Simulated assay, not measured.
Amino acid sequence: MKKLTSLIVVLILLTSCKKQIDQTAEKNQEAGKLNRIAAPNQFIGKNKSQAMVLGVFHFSNASMDSYKKKFSFNILEEKRQAELDTLIEKIAAYRPTKILIEVNRVKYDSIINSRFEHYLSNSYSIEDKSNEVYQIGFKLAKKLGHHKVYCSDATAEWFGVQLDWDNYDGEEYMKSRGQYLKANRYDYNAIYRMHDSLKTQQSLTDHLIMLNHPESRLKDHQAYLTGTILAGAGDNYLGADSVGKWYRRNLRIFANAYDLTDFENEERLLLIYGSGHVWQLRQFFMDSPDYDYVEPNDYLTE
């Protein structure tokens, strides 16, 4: 009887130990799954693409930005054309597989690519076209043997507070809210004026090296976060909505870039955009699991 009792106790102990071992193994297996999910590279694509955003100033002085250009620049001059050749040679070393330009994708992609096809066949001249879309985008794409350029810009409709814009005085409104002095304690226009002036004194490559330096781009981005965003805080949030509209446009540009990327191949995207776009687009590419971001100055300074 004692032997039977001892045997039963042993069996119970063995069963209990096995159950504990199974539970521990199950927990370890689950923890392993969680660790794999938490691992930084878990969701990285097997063929990550590269992306570079080349920030430029608008050669044709379209004056679409809040700062209106005061210094003239003619990319079509012989001296500037020679500088442009140097710039294109440097960027070509990156060997982009697709060139994305600052033109509305939905409205103009077919129009622009019709022009590009004719440009390749020498039946469309860009000798009088100063816009960087033609002077950098078309020329670089032709040099690299591309058969297409990619319009990737997008509009971002206003979705914020509705005001009587014809009679709205932003300065007076911010003064009435006690926000004007705080919003203008940094003189960003002085930076814009300096850059505007330097483009006439520096070579094209040297000027773009300055514009594409991460510290320059951060300072430009900070203008939205120290001045623009403050307007209407605690009331109609006009400034925050304005910054949101800017983010919305850049997110749409990034969405276009993502849509145009073939992740089954080793893509190297080059986006040619006004330098004000660089900080946000750069951040989106750097935060994405599918891209390695390439600094343009790594090539411009070679």
Rank of each mutant, 00 (worst) to 15 (best):
Y192T: 09
F57Y: 07
V133W: 00
M64R: 11
L54Q: 04
F116H: 09
K70S: 11
K245N: 05
W279R: 10
Q50V: 02
T97A: 09
I88L: 15
T24Q: 15
A257S: 15
V106S: 12
G137M: 15
A231S: 07
E295K: 07
K3E: 03
Y247V: 05
L163D: 03
K98A: 05
S203W: 01
Q135T: 12
Q283V: 03
Q23S: 13
V9E: 09
Y293S: 10
R177K: 15
L208E: 15
D206S: 14
E132I: 10
G170K: 10
E89W: 01
T155P: 07
E102N: 12
A31Y: 04
D153I: 01
S114C: 07
E171R: 09
L281S: 02
Q201T: 08
H195K: 08
L270M: 15
V56M: 06
W279Q: 13
Q222G: 02
L140V: 10
I12V: 15
A223L: 08
R252Y: 04
K33Y: 05
E215Y: 10
A38K: 07
S121A: 04
G178L: 11
Q280A: 12
A82S: 13
I88W: 11
L14K: 08
G234F: 00
D169C: 05
G160A: 10
A154W: 07
D128K: 15
I44E: 09
N28R: 04
L198M: 14
Y224E: 03
D241M: 09
T228L: 02
R249A: 14
Q201N: 10
N250Q: 11
E215F: 07
Q280E: 04
E77Q: 14
G32Y: 00
V149S: 13
N74W: 03
S63P: 01
K33C: 07
Y293L: 14
D166G: 00
R217I: 12
Y299V: 09
L260G: 02
K46N: 04
K70I: 08
A233T: 07
L100Y: 05
S114V: 01
E302M: 11
L144H: 13
S16I: 14
D235H: 12
R268K: 15
E267H: 12
V56K: 00
N113I: 04
E172I: 03
Q162W: 01
Y134P: 11
A240M: 05
N265S: 13
I111V: 13
E102I: 04
A156Y: 00
L238I: 08
I88R: 09
Y247N: 12
R36N: 14
D287R: 13
H207S: 08
K79Q: 05
A141K: 13
M1P: 06
N212R: 02
I12Y: 08
A38H: 02
K70H: 06
E77L: 13
A231Q: 14
E78C: 11
F159W: 02
D287E: 14
K27E: 02
R248M: 15
Q50E: 08
G232T: 03
K48H: 04
N265R: 11
H147E: 12
R249S: 12
N297C: 03
M1D: 06
Y119F: 15
Y134R: 09
L238W: 04
C17F: 13
I12P: 03
N167G: 07
H195Q: 10
L34S: 10
V56D: 00
Q42C: 12
K175F: 10
S242A: 13
T24K: 14
Y299G: 06
T205Y: 04
M52W: 01
K219L: 12
I99Y: 02
G170N: 06
Q280I: 13
R249T: 14
